[in-house]
Design a protein around this nucleic acid. Structure first.
Lengths: 215, 215
DNA sequence: CGCCTAATTGAGAAGTATCAACAGAAGTGG
DNA sequence: CCACTTCTGTTGATACTTCTCAATTAGGCG
């Protein structure tokens, strides 16, 4: 990943200065592997990802990791934002983020009706996201992978050819599988002609068929 | 069905502390098996369960059911409260609920700072609940059942002897297992001396040991 | 008591995890 | 540029867990 990151590249959505978040204009940079915050930390900020990819995860007792979410450019995260963090957040690639002080956000939400609605709406989306992941975990391995690829295709804005920013371990920890099972699922989908892949470059050859698996 | 729907009643002279929900004092009754609302319905109300038990679930393509949550006396639910319902809600036993008009709640949340905080806090709790269920689905069968029993023990306020209001099918659909696997997990925990059980009356014989499984 | 449904148990099939080996890409240093 | 190391991803063999299908037992209710 080149370090020449276009900072403050206005996302497609023209930022209403009246947004409840009112993210700071100055972006903060994190290197790949660097930690934004850790489980148990006091929570001070909402984050908006300008560029790159971040994972939010919990460390489990058995030494494993449960990845709750991938965050990409444009995503807002850090909703566990009073008291302690429920998750750790780590940069998967080099990233730049903008932050918003939690307290100030809550003040704006309380003061302004539209701002309150916006925050509630964002929170509701967060609930739906978590619930969709719950549905994932009830499926078979190849279905989870299919669903994952479709989600990435949509969220990364790369309909046909995906360049996945995360490792097989990340995918496995997100889908509640082992890396071996994930790898086999990739192979299976490949042999079925539904995807093509040199490793992290995945081609979706038959999205409709993939979608059928996930329903 | 929402036949006798109580509309915005008492303005400020409520017997309870001023809550953002301000649930109507008049309770609505549903018989066991009756539906409060269905997936895809327009959402009009928040619900507060006065008595009984309710399940919130999604019907899946394969004819199965994914139970998102059990709701008991005192619980507030119906957070998928603008646009369409994400889940269906059905009474497991005879229940009585109090309702609150969504729009009115949002108005109060926008108007009053404490009310706004309360609604946000409740929504955040809802996120945490969903996330905890996600963690459930990553565990083994007997661990899920152990975790389930502890959750019920806590939420039903019955530390030692549980009287479960739901069927094995409900439990299975909540834990992402089959009824047979749930049954075997019960037997397994029974034989290990951790629980005792005539069917729906479960005794927790060793809560600390059960807790160890869930971590 | 007899019926009906819920719950349990058993045997075999399917799916995933685990352990181990191997292949490929990327980086390091000579 | 090449040999070496290292990390990531793939593949194989086997064990373990859960599902499926089938049979049996237990509970609830007339």
């Amino acid at each position: 990943m080149p370090a020449s990151v276009p900072l403050l590249s206005t996302p497609d959505r023209v930022e209403k200065s009246a947004s409840v978040f009112n993210f700071d204009n100055k972006a903060t940079i994190y290197q790949a592997g660097e930690r934004l915050f850790a489980e148990g930390d006091s929570a001070f900020y909402f984050y908006k990802l300008v560029h790159g990819a971040v994972i939010c995860f919990k460390s489990l007792a058995n030494g494993r990791r449960s990845i709750d979410s991938f965050r990409f450019a444009g995503d807002v995260f850090g909703f566990d934002c009073d008291g302690e963090r429920e998750f750790s957040a780590v940069a998967v690639s080099n990233v730049s983020v903008r932050v918003a002080d939690c307290h100030a956000v809550f003040l704006r939400a309380a003061a302004d009706r539209a701002a309150g609605q916006e925050l509630l709406g964002a929170t509701k989306q967060e609930i739906q996201r978590v619930q969709r992941r719950s549905m994932l975990l009830a499926m078979k391995a190849y279905e989870r992978v299919a669903s994952f690829l479709l989600e990435m295709s949509e969220r990364l804005g790369q309909p046909d050819i995906l360049e996945l920013p995360m490792s097989r371990r990340d995918i496995a920890d997100y889908l509640g599988l082992t890396i071996e099972t994930v790898s086999r699922a990739f192979t299976q989908l490949d042999k079925a002609g539904l995807i093509g892949r040199p490793s992290r470059h995945v081609a979706l050859r038959n999205s409709p068929a993939l979608k059928l698996m996930t329903e």
